[in-house]
Design a binder for these strands. Sequence first.
DNA 1: AGTTCCATGTAAACGGTTACATGATTTT
DNA 2: AAAATCATGTAACCGTTTACATGGAACT
Lengths: 175, 175
Amino acid sequence: MSLPHALLGLLADGPASGYDLLKRFDGTLAFVWPATQSQLYTELGKLDRDGMVEVAAHGPRGRKEYAITDAGRTELHRWLTDTEPERVRRNESTLRVFFLGSVAPDEARAYLEREAELAAEQLAVFRELAESVEWAAMPVWVRFSRVALEQGIRVTEANLAWARWAADEVDVITG
Amino acid sequence: MSLPHALLGLLADGPASGYDLLKRFDGTLAFVWPATQSQLYTELGKLDRDGMVEVAAHGPRGRKEYAITDAGRTELHRWLTDTEPERVRRNESTLRVFFLGSVAPDEARAYLEREAELAAEQLAVFRELAESVEWAAMPVWVRFSRVALEQGIRVTEANLAWARWAADEVDVITG
DNA sequence: AGTTCCATGTAAACGGTTACATGATTTT
DNA sequence: AAAATCATGTAACCGTTTACATGGAACT
């Protein structure tokens, strides 16, 4: 149940509408916590009822600009310092690896080679992003998103190296 | 919706009861795809109704031993070769990194240091597992679980190195 | 006789996804 | 005038989690 806190986290940096938040989600947070438009508006309504955010301004086309409240800031702080993140990572790609013995060796190898290919593409996207921004000039919250991006880069590098190794390992296992 | 296929994957290696499958889940697959007892029994019922598995034997205490059917094997193969895994990885630990600018520098550093500590513990568990089994003597499906474990090791190593770097980076950012 | 383990199931609630629905404003 | 963009909301469905419920068999 991280979505409400993710929204509080974004609003901590300044007021925004549901529409604004959706766009900010799609760019960065979606890599680690996707959210749909539907979910987002529903959650903003709940946060409003709970006093975590408030409608600070009404704009054209029914636009509602939300601002975080003191209670919301307190809750965000509590979440970040007093609670433990859920560490289970559902990973369908890796789940499949357990069952690669059920298919022919060349099919298993093909699967792992495709994983390697996709990891390489992902890595290129991350690296491009890392190089296309002048992070040092950015506000603090953007610089922390660079820290998160660095994790994406390092983990994807490890994943790429693993997938290449694993593709070769198929021959070792199936002899 | 990987659970049914995970069950088919386990049953492809031999018949088992819901209880057996639950234990095998908890040991290994749970790292990448956790499932509860409740969910597992419900899903086995569905797979049975859909003709993917069948009750091969009845044991004591109402034990039902399920076996994969030909239709189930076909579906497992289709899943592994003709469909793409869902690649979105929800990751609450990393989500929080985006918002570390909302807390004091020492709180941000504490968060990342704890991440490093946990990664180190996780890594020790994985390495112990890797060294405590004679993989070469094991059946094919077990040797593929060693391949999955290798991913856990490599990704956790990358994560550990990242978390240590990130903890230092807090001072650079908030300097 | 009591405890532990084996073994299966149902029901309620929750979070997330997909689909539907509407309409105002701005740009071309 | 038409198309694109801004903007919000609801409803149905599905997968997952938590809690409840039951009882037989083996071990001490």
